[in-house]
Design a binder for these strands. Structure first.
Length: 379
RNA sequence: UCCCAAGUAGCUCAGUUGGUUAGAGCAUCUGACUGUUAAUCAGAGGGCCGGGGGUUCAAGUCCCUCCUUGGGAG
């Protein structure tokens, strides 16, 4: 008998935070968890071996990008995305809903689905909810996301309602396609998450979350946040949504965020996160460290023989100096991207791992306050 | 010694028949990045236009002279 998909180990006494375990056929995932983003079948500039060394349990892939290149036929012939990219842990694939949003100049929406032109060669494609389920079945991801529409910010309420209604129709069709026409292809289970929308309107957020719960998914994500709104507004939307979502299912806040965003969301009951920030910003010279956010290209690190971050347990963090990493980044050396990316992911994993430990030991609130004070006020 | 070419930002170079506040790329410095079209993008600082003299309402641009560098001749 397979283990429960999600089990809560401890609820925080002072806050809505919780510590739990998600179990897929590829890995046990302690929550809260951060999932590094590997859009095109690679977490950019980091070996899978390095991710394993850092105890990464789950990464993201992207339906839209992998469908356009290399294409599902190729990944299917390799036996699925895990084998294709040699990743032994779990994989969650985003549906392409975010690309429909971020590449909006290239697409048109209808009730049937999203019609779009490939950014690679201009070829025409259509993503229906059913097709997106099928693509993720061919990819073989452990967690399949529904196709949704991510609204822009700011957004008029009538547009938010219209968008929500479209996402709802898509969610119903997605669930049906997943349950009725989507037997797993590679011998392990797949789970499907619904995605809450409703822009920045609390009543819409509640209403739509309830509709998703009524449809019934393995877990629920919160989408359409961190799209330019003030952080406080995002926190409010997380709170009202989590009031409706069932306590015994994981909650996934999509695309978030900064270390501070993540701790605030954990406090409000979020279990899963993904974000390009640690990897993208690493490649652009920004490091997240236990002593604050720094830009490694700054002249003040020219002579620094300090280690990147001795507090963080990774090869990159504990074996190379700031001055050396600065040199690599300014010289456009590939190892600079690798070390910076590895460190940032190690930091994000350390952050959620420590949050979990503190929830288990009952010290989450005080630790969070102290950490953020230190992080935001570097000596 | 003579002939030719070239001297403009730290570097490599644009700069129209003389006409706004002399530009670019790179470098330097700083910032941004939130379900990745991103090893990307944005901003800033930086000039006795080789020196001097002249022509002109006006010179990086035309003339003279000197200096420096490169090439060629002897």
């Amino acid at each position: 008998m397979a283990k429960d998909f999600f089990k809560i180990e401890k609820n925080d006494t002072n806050t809505k935070a919780r510590a739990g375990v998600i179990t897929t056929d590829h890995s046990e995932i302690p929550t809260p968890i951060f999932m590094p983003v590997g859009t095109q079948g690679t977490v950019k500039a980091i070996y899978p071996r390095t991710l394993e060394e850092m105890d990464t349990r789950i990464i993201l892939g992207n339906t839209y990008h992998l469908y356009l290149r290399p294409g599902t036929d190729i990944i299917n012939k390799f036996g699925g995305l895990h084998k294709f990219m040699n990743w032994k842990g779990s994989i969650l694939t985003d549906s392409g809903g975010y690309q429909v949003f971020s590449l909006k100049d290239l697409r048109k929406l209808s009730e049937e689905g999203a019609h779009f032109a490939s950014y690679l060669d201009g070829s025409k494609h259509m993503f229906s909810p059913e097709k997106v389920v099928e693509i993720q079945r061919l990819l073989g991801s452990d967690v399949v996301m529904v196709l949704d529409e991510c609204t822009e910010y700011p957004c008029e309420k009538k547009d938010a309602i219209k968008s929500m209604q479209l996402s709802e129709k898509w969610a119903i069709r997605s669930r049906k396609a997943f349950l009725e026409d989507s037997e797993p292809l590679y011998g392990f289970r797949q789970f499907q998450f619904g995605i809450g929308q409703g822009s920045m309107f609390a009543d819409l957020r509640r209403e739509y979350a309830q509709k998703l719960v009524d449809i019934g998914f393995d877990a629920y994500a919160i989408g359409g946040l961190s799209v330019g709104e003030p952080a406080e507004l995002m926190y409010d939307m997380i709170e009202v949504t989590n009031e409706v979502l069932p306590l015994d299912k994981p909650r996934y806040l999509m695309g978030v965020g900064t270390p501070e965003n993540i701790l605030e969301a954990i406090e409000r009951g979020i279990d899963m996160f993904d974000c390009v920030m640690p990897t993208r910003n690493a490649r652009n010279g920004q490091l997240f460290t236990s002593y604050g956010k720094i830009n490694i290209r700054n002249a003040k690190y020219k002579y620094s023989q300090e280690l990147i971050d001795p507090m963080i347990d990774s090869y990159a963090s504990q074996n190379f100096t700031l001055g050396y990493l600065r040199h690599l980044m300014l010289s456009d050396e590939i190892m600079g991207l690798m070390l910076a990316s590895e460190h940032n992911i190690a930091f994000y994993l350390w952050l959620v791992r420590t949050a979990r430990e503190k929830i288990l030991s009952g010290e989450f609130s005080s630790w969070k306050r102290e950490f953020l004070f230190r992080y935001n006020n570097p000596e």
